[in-house]
Every structure is written in structure tokens, then in C-alpha cells.
Design a protein around this nucleic acid. Sequence first.
RNA 1: GGCGAGAUAGCUCAGGUGGUUAGAGCGCAUGAUUCAUAAUCAUGAGGUCGGGGGUUCAAUCCCCCCUCUCGCUACCA
Length: 677
Amino acid sequence: MKKFKRYLVTSALPYANGPIHIGHLAGVYVPSDIYSRYLRLRGEDVISICGSDEHGVPITLKARNEGVTPKEIVDRYHAVNKKAFEDFGIAFDIYSRTSNKIHYETASEFFLKLYNNGEFTEKTTEQYYDEEAGCFLADRYIMGTCPHCGNESAYGDQCERCGTSLSPSDLINPHSTVSGSKPVLRETLHWYLPLDRYEPWLRKWILEDHKEWKTNVYGQCKSWLDQGLQPRAVSRDLDWGVPVPVKNAEGKVLYVWFDAPIGYISATKELTPDWEKYWKDNETKMVHFIGKDNIVFHCIIFPVMLKAEGTYILPENVPANEFLNLENDKISTSRNWAVWLHEYLEDFPGKQDVLRYALCSSAPETKDNDFTWKEFQARNNNELVAILGNFVNRTLVLTNNYYDGNVPPVGKADPKDESVLKELPGLKENVENSLETFRFREALKEAMNVARLGNKYLADAEPWKVIKTDPERVKTIMNIALQITANITIILEPFLPFSMAKLRTWLNISRLDWNEAGKTNLLKTGHKINKPGLLFEKIEDDEIIRQVDKLMATKKTNESAAMILAPAKDSVSFDDFTKLDLRTATVLEAEKVPKTTKLLKLKIDTGIDVRTIVSGIAEYFEPESLIGKQISIVANLEPRKIKGIESKGMILMAEDKDGRLFIVAPEGKVNNGSIIK
RNA sequence: GGCGAGAUAGCUCAGGUGGUUAGAGCGCAUGAUUCAUAAUCAUGAGGUCGGGGGUUCAAUCCCCCCUCUCGCUACCA
């Protein structure tokens, strides 16, 4: 394996429109922190970079909703998250933010360099424009009626009620959320990064040179490359972000995906004048810690940017994790289904390491994983308390009882002692190998094996028995148990920094270098240790019940929450109503439209004719079950081609809160073609 | 529908190159033990490796088909 002189560790920049939750931690920040703490402990030159990602449309929207400026939003969450990370012991060397001046400069320079090198293509497209407010509108700024579910407050990119993804042109009665006026299409110029130009290079760099990447990462990249890459716009019409630094670009900013990863660079610049050493020297190993939603940006787009710029190094690895669920349900900010870091820190003061441990032991490394409070409790009580805390406690208590806290001398080691001591270097190596291949769960398990080894040793050697018959022998036993304890302070340090700091004060030692691990003379004979406390406390059922209840309350709130009903529509004249030709009809044939998930092709008898309707209902109805069913239709809707099939009309359905569809039909059998009025 | 990832013990997961009897932690059962926060240590039970075909002397692993979960994507008048 190539040896590197220094390390640059980046962690995905959290988006500054909400607080950090356990999903972020398990996927990104806990692993990256363990990794960088381990490297520091080994004495490597390593910097760990993170910061708030503060641009983009969602922040401007949230600001608008709350009637504050975007700056106020990002200031708020930057402060909350920065503090939460600090309190939790995520030891970034810098937690910067993309609204900093240095970032504007860095991002502008980066853009200009690519611009001047002719790396961009320009394209004029039609975008929606608000004539009253005098600005272009991002999709999110356009609202209208969802053509799918009738929700009148659907956004131009998505209807929040039925989850359908939309484009602004889909909306019925679109209006700008800025001024309320009707948006018009207007031409606008944007710059594009032609990813396709770099496809051959990417194929080699990833598919051939980085076969060691995690299968989920590698597979996803391959999938993108095989589908063929498209040029991607690097600018947007928006007033919140880094302005595009060229002429005739008023009102245009760098698209947030372009701007955000450059945040890693500007944060490094802010941290050290030596930043180029980390970004431009082949002897630096760069590692991006991210979640799986970010794979394409960090493995394809950002590398293309760096490559196009020409002077930067590329990541050696991108250990993306999958997602963490919470109590069997997807973590969701909008549904408040999460364990928020700042709340955890309040509810469980001093228990940072417990959460670090629980999240690392069940990190979603190879597939989505589920966090439950019951498991959290079990990890604490059965592992941290019972195995680690207990071993440390019995060793320190015995030492204090027998020797008044002085480390006793080692006598002649018997074969049992020697075999135990010989295991230490092996365990240390196991942890190293696992960490260096980004298997954090495995690394933690191996690290805990040191404590297991200690417990087993004590049980076998039985110093509390031997003390009655051979006190000299007990000195050796306790010395060895103490050396194991000292090893624990090193090997578990990257995972449990708070507890190991505590343990060091009890052992009365300062922090030891990783390379000391495995040695059996870390504590000198006669060294005086302090009175210990408890390393971990049991977590009782009531604390867990309280947390689960909190979540159940959330669930109840969500379930009982009234369906978000579309507001009443403007009244229409009777004449307008009579323009609609609503009729009864009967389904004659029904089949799935090939290569679609939702579409059914129906042949129906409308009384006046037999026609074909394509309808997006396949997820809720078996085709056969519809045959013979009476339905209601809009008979005079403009025909439209869907997946190449001409659809003449629309079937009326009632949609429940959860998206389930129900046929709207006459109560009794009536003739096909009967008018509905 | 397409693409990617996954499905292994009650739970969470290993199983790098196909090769004895498929492993670990937690949980469970039994025994030992009492220095320790009812902690520890030992032993054990527990598996149709999602289902079905195929290749092979040999398949958890390779190939094909299917089912289910997650993500990306297409589709919704």
C-alpha cells in the first residue's frame, strides 16, 4: 500500500437549514472522527475539515417562510451545529462555513480558472421569470395546483402532499411565491460543466484504479458512468450564493453543488497558510466521508472539477455509508422522526461516548441499519458497563485495595501471563487494519476485545483467591491487568475519547501515542494511581422508556395530523362547470403499461364509445380486479400521449392522506355514459 | 420498468481467492465464580445461508430466473 506523508479528511458539509441528527453522525461524522483521531494518535500529519453548507434554494425558502433573511437562518444552524459537534467530541480542525469571505474568493477563483481554461460550455435556456419582482424563479419558488392530487400548494419541483416530482410547467395555475404574479418564460444564460468530456478518464480512474472502493460506492459510480454523463449547469438565477464572477452574470450565483465541495478547500485555506500542501501534493491522502446520497458529487462531479482545474489531488477513497433508520422508520426531519444531537446532549449529559459507541457498533456500513433505544441501552449496559467499565473498575479497585494504588512489580511471568501479553500487539494490529480499510464496526469490536482479554485474564488468574496463598504472585497478575488497562486508554481513544481521558486521570498518566499500544511496560513499578470512579453507568429502563415515549408521541402527532387539505379553489361559473364532460363508464380491459411502475392501460366503455385511458394507478389496483368495475371519468379532457399510448380522458379517484387511491363511482349500477352533474 | 446495493442464528453483522463441521458480538440456557455497577468466566442450544434452476469433484460465494427491502431514475392529466 502506498505510504502517504499527510492526510486530508473531509466530512460532508451539513446543510445549514436544520440540526444534526444521529443519522448524520452514524453515517459520516462518527466514522470520520474516529479515523482522524486514530491518525493523529499515530502522529500523522492530518487535518479534519468540515463546515456548514449555507447556500442553495431550501435555505432561502425557509428564510422566506419564517420572514427572516437567509443569513439569519444559516447563522442559527451554523451556531447550533458547530456547538453540538464540539460538545459531542467531533474534533474537526476547523468547522467553517460557505458564507465566509474566503470561500467566496476561493469559489470565484476556482470558477474563473475553469472559465478561462474553456472548461465550461454556455447554454441559453428558458426559465421562469417573475416580471413583477424582476427575478428568475427557481422551481421551488413557483407554486400551483398539483395536477396529480389537486393540492393547490404544490411546488414547482415537487408536490409535498403526494410526493410527486414535478416541473414548473406541470403546475396548473402557476404563480410566483415572490410576488404572486404569473411567471413567464424568459431566456437565460448558464454555464455547464461537460462531465461527458471526462467520462473516459473517470472510467479509468474509478473503475480500474479504485476497485478497492466500497461496493456500494463503486457500483453507484459504475451505474452513472454506464448511463452516460451529461453536462451539468454550474450556475443558477438566484441572489443567495457566490456570484458568478464574469461579466453579464448579474443575478447569477454558483449552483450549490459546485460551491459546496469547494468549501473543503476554503476551509483548509482558512485553517492554514500551508493549505496547498494538503490539496496539491501527491503525497497527501484525501478521504471524503459522506452518506450515500452524496456519492455522485464526491466520486464524479467534484473529481472532474479538481481534474479540470488541474493542480489539485483527487480523493484516495470515498467511504460512503448507507442510511440509519430510527425505530424501524426512516429518519425524517420534516416528520420530526429523529434523535437530534443537541437534544441527546441535553438528555444524556456526559454520555457522548455511549452514543459514539452505539452508533459506531451499528453504523450502516454495508446496508441501511436501524437504531433502537433498546439496543442503545443494551450496548451501554452489556458492553460498555459490563465488559469495559467493569474490567477497568475491578483492576483499579484491586490495585487500590492491595497496594494502596501503587503499581506492583512484575515477577516471573508464567506461560498464561505471556500468552495474554502476546495478544496485545495482535489486537492493536487488527484495529489498525480495520480502521485503514474503513471497517469501523469491526475495529471497535477488536478494540473491545482488549477489555474482554482483561476480564478473562482476571477470571483465570483469580488474584482475589491467590492473595491468600501467594501474595507475590498477585503482584505480577495485577501489574499485567494494569498494563492491559493502560493499553485500553490508547486503543479505545479514537472511539471513546471522553472515557479514555477519564481513565487516564485515574491511571494518572498522560495521553500515550498509538505506537505505544501493545507494550507491556506502560506503567512503571511504583507509579501511583488515583481512586477510580465509574467509567460508565447503567442506563435504566425509565430513561429509555422516556425516549421511546417521546418518539411515540411524535408518531401519534404525525398520524393524527389532519390531512393537509388543499385550500378551497376559486369559484367557477356554472358555465365553466358544464364544460366538463363527466360520465360513468365501465372497465373492459386493464393491463400494465410495460416498463412503468404506476401506469395502467385501460379500455373502457363510455356508452358513447370504447376508448383507451392511461392512468397512474397501478400501485393500488391489480389490473384484473378492475375489469367490470364501474368508474367515473372526465370524458372531454384533451387527449395526451403517455408512454406512446394515446390517453383519452381521466379516471376520477379519491386520494387518501397516505396516497392510497379509491375509485369514485356511482353507488348503484347505472348505464355507461350517464352524465355526472 | 431500468440501474445500483442488500437478504446468513432471536437481534446486529463477518464470511478477501469456490474447499473440512458456515463464524462473532449481544440475547437465551446450564455450570463456575464473588475482586467488580446482579458485573465476569466456561460450556451449550439455536441456521432450508430469501426461493428455484444451472456450472463444478465441490457453491453462502460463480451464472440464470423469481420474491422482498433500500437508493437513484423513468412514468402519473
